[in-house]
Amino acid sequence: MQAIAFLLDAVASFFCTLFLLRFMMQAMRVSFAGQIGDFVVKLTNWAVKPLRSVIPGIGGYDWASLLAALAVQLALSGVLIGLAGPALNADGGTVALMVLWFAVRAVLRLAVYILIGALILQAVLSWINPYSPLAAPAYQLTRPILDPIRRILPTISGIDLSPLVAILLLQVALMFL
């Protein structure tokens, strides 16, 4: 059972991450023209395009991608809690709330992990290869987080500590999730 749960979690997390990345890239106006954008779009179109006919983008946000991420996590949470069902001794309403809570929590945690990964990628690429095709999307994805921190914490001797502060704050957010 543990192997099945692991495989289900890995596949669900992969697609949920792609849906969230698509939502975040659109929200932060990251170009989909590069390799990363093309990869994300091609692997998520199967779910996002049909959802867009029902859920339009409102306010510049791709709500269909966010709903797809939540749906994947709802399905995973439902299956995992269903596998543990006989041991729970809970009524249907409680189980439904557990499934919803676990799904929302998982989506929020994955969003934070995506941001942490983008911050680390941006920091490493700024040292190694600032002209990499991944540098621009990573910068665009992290700019809304780093700009407010940069206003408060200036560069010290040419070293930007804002990614470190952002990662620490995101780690604190993970502790609450």
Results as ranks from 00 to 15, higher is better:
164 L>F: 06
12 A>K: 01
136 A>P: 07
68 A>M: 08
175 M>I: 13
51 L>V: 08
92 G>D: 12
84 A>T: 06
13 S>Y: 12
81 I>Q: 07
110 L>G: 06
174 L>S: 15
22 R>C: 00
42 K>C: 03
148 P>H: 04
15 F>I: 05
121 L>S: 10
10 A>E: 08
55 I>F: 01
153 L>Y: 00
48 V>N: 03
39 F>D: 08
164 L>S: 09
46 W>I: 11
90 A>K: 14
174 L>G: 14
87 A>W: 02
53 S>A: 06
20 L>A: 00
145 I>F: 01
77 S>I: 00
8 L>N: 08
119 L>D: 01
25 M>E: 06
166 A>L: 07
163 P>I: 12
65 S>Q: 09
63 W>Y: 14
71 A>S: 14
170 L>M: 10
45 N>T: 13
155 T>E: 13
169 L>V: 15
113 Y>L: 14
130 P>W: 02
89 N>G: 11
129 N>S: 14
166 A>T: 11
41 V>C: 04
71 A>K: 01
153 L>V: 15
38 D>S: 13
6 F>I: 12
37 G>M: 05
166 A>I: 12
20 L>E: 02
57 G>C: 05
31 S>K: 09
171 Q>M: 12
160 D>S: 08
65 S>A: 15
96 A>K: 07
176 F>R: 13
122 Q>T: 04
50 P>T: 08
152 I>M: 13
25 M>N: 06
21 L>M: 15
98 M>G: 05
63 W>I: 01
11 V>F: 08
153 L>K: 06
92 G>K: 15
24 M>S: 14
160 D>E: 07
15 F>R: 03
83 L>H: 05
154 P>M: 11
23 F>A: 00
12 A>G: 09
97 L>G: 03
135 A>F: 05
139 Y>V: 04
136 A>Y: 11
99 V>L: 04
152 I>P: 09
155 T>Q: 13
82 G>F: 04
80 L>K: 12
9 D>H: 06
89 N>Q: 12
24 M>K: 05
127 W>K: 11
177 L>V: 15
87 A>C: 03
68 A>T: 07
76 L>I: 01
